[in-house]
Design a protein around this nucleic acid. Structure first.
Lengths: 232, 232
DNA sequence: AAAGATGATTGATTAATATCAACCCATAAG
DNA sequence: CTTATGGGTTGATATTAATCAATCATCTTT
């Protein structure tokens, strides 16, 4: 792993406070690989042999049941995925595939567990990371159970707008079909949902979104920090 | 806190391996109280001042948005709730109310965080607990996104049956209106869903469920360990 | 036992969402 | 340049689920 990548990973909250030696040990045991787009990295149900770090590109976490499939989350650089399975030494609950050409570091799960036992700062960081992830999923569940698909889209747009800097014009960071799946709806429905938001000043041009009337949209979406504020 | 209760709490995975002294310290600082039914213990958005342990009775975790409300989970003795908020020192994402007369221990969150820093075994137990909780919510989200309400009910019945010992006859451990909310549907819909399961041999009498044709129901429900097996 | 409350069920209707089919459009391959 | 290909959109329809209203059942209180 080149030094710049090494530093990028080191800066992650999960790794930033652990002992140099322990971090180096984890990285020595890591397999860093470039994967093409659409490569299935892990399959749900498989034993969680590796903890994954996305160094560049992006990864879709998804799940299937009875012939159906849904997108659970997207992982972007530089961050990690399936920490809980690694820690519990339990099967993956989600599958993962690259969305584009991606560079991924794979750390043997047993190494993570070993260093977890040895390094208190790493253990604390893991706790924070898990607690954060836990709360994120709770928020997602509230979003799903309390809102209609139109409301979920409206709030997603507001979140994404904020994330993109807050301007009236911004880009979706999802392919629409996958955004639909993440929001728990069909692509057809997403297309209609965008139309339904036109009265609130939402204009769509490919992946470029313009929010013409911020106040109107917010009045409709009723964003709530306990659902939408992913920093807390 | 009486000795028997003290021992019951001590036996929880979360506490069973920590140092005697640290456990005693946590318990010394705890407030143990009896609450009547329907008492709101915490309100979402409030600072997470206390970590909670249900000693007897039961507690409903629920969330609200825009005048709607949904049941997220039910906590039964002896177990704990809102660990993630306590650890992160972040606002509660869910509200909690007693479903019946309940005995609850409240431990100041800062005590939990302090002992977490001091006791490696406790820290490890917290990690396991958080990872378990995280995975449970992921499973719930898959249940919600991949299944219809009828399929969710069928699988819930199979889970509950297993939990009750596996016999053809068992009891629901929910009031139906709240079961409906947990499953993400209306009470009316739940009522109709039970009827729709009659062809699969499901008979309902109050809270007593009889599964007349196990194979048929399973064939319809298609239970999957990656969604329904809450032990892994 | 009568009255009141609460939860559960049922029927009728409406709303939300998915499905199916066709078509559009951009882009990449031949 | 033409042809595939895949995402996106649109319209028609079907399914799923929510809402509204009424009734029924159960349990508690008086």
């Amino acid at each position: 792993m080149p030094g710049s990548e090494y530093q990028d990973v080191r800066k992650l909250n999960l790794f930033s406070r652990m002992a140099d030696e322990n971090f180096a040990s984890l990285m020595r045991g890591a397999y860093v690989q470039n994967f093409p787009a659409q490569m299935e990295l892990i399959t749900e149900g498989d034993p969680s042999d590796f903890f994954h770090i996305v160094i560049s590109g992006s990864v879709d976490l998804f799940s299937s049941w009875n012939g159906r499939e849904t997108s659970m989350a997207t992982v972007r650089p530089v961050s990690t995925f399936i920490l809980a399975a690694t820690i519990k030494d339990a099967p993956y609950l989600m599958s993962a595939r690259t969305l584009e050409k991606s560079r991924i570091a794979l750390i043997p799960s047993q190494d993570v567990r070993a260093v977890f036992d040895a390094d208190g700062n790493f253990a604390r960081a893991i706790v924070t990371e898990l607690a954060q992830g836990y709360r994120s999923v709770i928020r997602a569940q509230k979003d799903l159970k309390l809102r209609t698909s139109l409301e979920r889209l409206a709030n997603y747009l507001l979140r994404q707008q904020k994330h993109a800097g807050g301007g009236a014009v911004f880009e979706l960071d999802f392919e629409k079909r996958r955004l639909a799946s993440v929001l728990g709806m069909t692509p057809e429905n997403l297309s209609r949902a965008f139309k339904s938001l036109q009265p609130y000043g939402v204009a769509v041009n490919g992946t470029r979104i313009t929010i013409g009337n911020q106040a109107d949209l917010e009045h409709f979406a009723k964003p709530n920090p306990l659902i939408d504020d992913h920093s807390s």
